[in-house]
Design a protein around this nucleic acid. Structure first.
Length: 216
DNA sequence: GACGAGATCCCCT
DNA sequence: GGGGATCTCGTCT
């Protein structure tokens, strides 16, 4: 797909007034684009996780934890929260009202715009390009938290409502790397079933014909 | 492939 | 100093 100039950013209402788990599922198939210095890059969201704020033992804001690092989570819906994790960076969309620190982690991206730039940014073969939260940030060439607090309406990174794909089937699982006392209740990871850019996908589970999208 | 160890680096309501 | 919402590589099937 050629770089896009005309599109509509997802409205604030998309990111509030309903459960963050629903928002995480609805983000699957949406196009994320980034106007990077090297040109526009982007792809379809294929994997997300919902983090449910102060009551969620897996969340950064569990029990009201609030510091400089996770303060963006407390800002308005549709804002950007980037954080460092073991030498990598990961990307959240903030959901819900101010001071309600919930968000959705973007964990997998199927490249659609500027793939050659992305493969220059991260020289790993095949689906290893962007099948994980730290990997996709490398592919986008984002290596800092400077875009924290920015809102999609006026950021160089955004999620748009145009050109979205529809998953044939949304699967869910426990969140990755999250250890809580209630793992059996954790089903807040969502992904496009059969898509190869979903993290930890086994080759035999890939749907090579459709990548898990509805085709009609 | 599956698994596990080690790297790495920012943050510390 | 210790701990992550991770990734890579070596080792073993």
């Amino acid at each position: 797909m050629a770089p896009l100039q005309n599109y509509h950013v997802l409205a604030d209402e998309f990111f509030t007034n309903r459960p963050t788990a629903d928002i995480a599922q609805d983000l699957l198939g949406k196009l994320l684009i980034y106007d990077s210095p090297a040109g526009q890059v982007g792809g379809y969201i294929v994997e997300t996780e919902a983090y449910l704020g102060t009551e969620d033992p897996g969340a950064h804001a569990y029990q009201g934890k609030h510091g400089r690092a996770n303060d963006p989570l407390y800002s308005e819906a549709g804002s950007i929260y980037i954080y460092a994790i073991r030498g990598f960076y990961a990307f959240d969309v903030v959901t819900q009202a101010n001071n309600e620190p919930q968000g959705v982690l973007i964990r997998g991206l199927e490249p659609a715009i500027g793939e050659s730039i992305m493969r220059h940014n991260r020289t790993r073969p095949g689906f290893e390009l962007s099948n994980g939260p730290g990997k996709l940030m490398q592919a986008l060439n984002i290596h800092d938290t400077k875009m924290n607090y920015q809102h999609f309406a006026d950021s160089s990174i955004k999620i748009i409502q145009d050109y979205a794909k529809i998953p044939r089937q949304v699967a869910q699982s426990q969140r990755i790397g999250v250890r809580t006392a209630a793992e059996w209740t954790d089903h807040y990871r969502y992904f496009v079933s059969g898509n190869p850019y979903v993290s930890k996908t086994r080759k035999r589970d890939i749907d090579f014909a459709t990548y898990g999208w509805k085709t009609n």
